[in-house]
Design a protein around this nucleic acid. Structure first.
Length: 286
DNA sequence: TAAACGTGGTC
DNA sequence: TGACCAAGTTT
């Protein structure tokens, strides 16, 4: 039978989105920045933030030279602002340990703060054309359906998935396969209401062949937000991002519940997202 | 391993 | 309207 990658690559050739971090002139640094921004964040929200970031900090050295608080401020409302701090720390480490060049090796990438299994494989693959299994939520869903015949993958990556994903990587154009299967998951084999009609592998999809049975695994935990400490942290950080200098009363106003505000602020200080300015209030790190 | 960690769009 | 979801990592 025709290998799985062939119809997927043909589909990708015809339907790939023109995303800035996929262009031939995208540097490994640009790829790294895009991957940080895309962690748990939709493409549509990254699209405007990505070029603005690169224009300001076109190299790891440029970002490393800036205060970490400026990275947090520029991160804006992308969410999970610790990513900005980690990207800044990664840039610093790239300057210190790799001469200012994003390392090409998986292990060196994995050693960078904020870079896990997925991001290391993605940067090695998209930034350098290396051959890696790139297993993100999109790919996991495609494989769960097409190969395993179930509606959705398990909560965490299994050994079996890694083995399966590795077995599917072609020798020719491995990075193109990685981006193609991700794109298929993002645009066609979506989490809800998959569009099987245009799917290039619908005729060999195990899930479809089984009649599209619903997800039957353990219940997935919903993620509350309203009124949580996370919500409070977000509100406090929004004030700090918009402030020029140290603030105190603005924070009190932004979140009147004092015990929770105090707890959240302590967490932000602990994370290094906020610093205290001797007796004058709080600010982003200088 | 489970829980924490932002934010906003969608059906 | 509200629950679900989005190119994860860290502890």
């Amino acid at each position: 039978m025709e290998p799985l990658h062939e119809p997927v690559l043909r589909w990708y050739d015809a339907h790939a989105r023109d995303l800035p971090w996929r262009r031939p002139d995208a540097t490994p640094w640009a790829v790294l920045v895009s991957e940080f921004m895309l962690q748990q964040t939709p493409v549509a929200r990254v699209l405007p933030a990505f070029p603005a970031w690169l224009e300001r900090w076109p190299t790891p050295a440029a970002l490393a030279d800036a205060p970490s608080g400026e990275a947090v401020r520029a991160w804006g409302r992308l969410g999970y602002p610790r990513r900005a701090l980690r990207l800044h720390a990664a840039a610093t480490l790239i300057v210190e340990d790799h001469g200012g060049e994003v390392p090409a090796g998986y292990d060196d990438l994995l050693a960078l703060p904020g870079v896990g299994e997925y991001t290391a494989a993605a940067v090695a693959s998209f930034g350098f054309g290396a051959r890696h299994a790139v297993l993100d939520t999109n790919v996991r869903r495609v494989l769960a359906r097409a190969v395993q015949g179930v509606a959705l993958p398990t909560v965490s990556v299994t050994r079996g998935e890694r083995t399966l994903a590795a077995s599917l990587v072609p020798d020719r154009e491995p990075a193109r396969w990685a981006v193609a299967v991700m794109e298929l998951g993002a645009m066609v084999c979506t989490a809800t209401a998959p569009r099987c009609d245009p799917c290039p592998i619908a005729d060999r999809c195990a899930w479809r062949a089984a009649g599209g049975p619903p997800y039957d695994g353990p219940p997935r935990k919903p993620q509350p937000y309203d009124g949580t400490d996370r919500h409070c942290r977000g509100a406090l950080l929004a004030v700090l991002r918009d402030a020029d200098g140290p603030v105190r009363e603005e924070l009190d106003k932004a979140w009147p519940d004092t015990p929770q505000r105090t707890r959240a602020l302590a967490g932000l200080l602990d994370d290094g997202l906020v610093v205290e300015r001797a007796g004058r209030g709080y600010a982003l790190p200088g």
